[in-house]
Design a protein around this nucleic acid. Structure first.
Lengths: 124, 124
DNA sequence: AATACTGTAATAGTTGAATATTACAGAGGT
DNA sequence: ACCTCTGTAATATTCAACTATTACAGTATT
């Protein structure tokens, strides 16, 4: 699992990690029982502090997505894929709503938005 | 001019103010020469600190959108409408790209996104 | 047993945003 | 002149996120 972190995009680093783990579980990059990268490993790879990774992992545990095996590592929980798949669209939707809301409040039409979506989609 | 601030939406308050002023200028809610709400007035209305408003206004000055008339207030600069109109779509586009990028990285299709856009647009 | 990994936790320091408070100089109305 | 409004600025404090560092209890490998 590779984690791409941008420290300056306004989203808290621990939250970026959380989301990427969830997405990875949802699309099968991480399977049930598989051990995720250790806190130190991910911290090094993403050039981030160990505590920040630990915080993300802790919250993922509380959500029932990861299981802690003391001394060994953290593994993807049995219920994780269902949880993550169910919330995947919701995570995208929430952010999309935020953008649409601002657009609508500024007299931008649905046509303009869909056009924008289509054109920007290509450039990615 | 009414300013709607959400202290908990992750965006810095001074940045929310900045954006809303820009949008207001772009769509004509604020016209050239018009005086914008005083720092204290807006601070009270938005339940926010004076310094936070002052910071937003200061940055808007540096961008050539507001003129300071010492002792009187801040007025919309002559070049402001052009500046704001030019950057309005760009501001929306930037945030939209961010969402689309995450969606695309997670095997979500353009169809799914456009469907999502259309359905969410209604609910706003 | 020794070593090298795991997660977890405590401590202390930095940074940016936001707050509360006080102060001052300039403009305008009375 | 007086008062009230304007922006501007300095100060101190709070808070969350992040960092750096150290430490400790388990597990696995050798």
């Amino acid at each position: 699992m590779i984690c791409q972190i941008d420290p300056n995009n306004g989203i808290a680093i621990y939250e970026q990690i959380e989301r990427q783990v969830k997405f990875a579980v949802a699309n099968g990059s991480l399977v049930v029982g598989e051990r995720i990268p250790s806190v130190r490993e991910l911290a090094t790879q993403a050039a981030v502090n160990v505590n920040t990774v630990a915080r993300a992992y802790r919250e993922l545990q509380q959500q029932g997505i990861l299981n802690s095996i003391r001394g060994t590592g953290l593994a993807v929980a049995a219920e994780a894929p269902e949880i993550c798949r169910r919330s995947r669209m919701q995570m995208i939707r929430d952010r999309l709503r935020f953008v649409l809301q601002e657009a609508k409040q500024n007299q931008i039409s649905l046509d303009e938005i869909t056009t924008l979506v289509t054109t920007e989609w290509q450039d990615l």
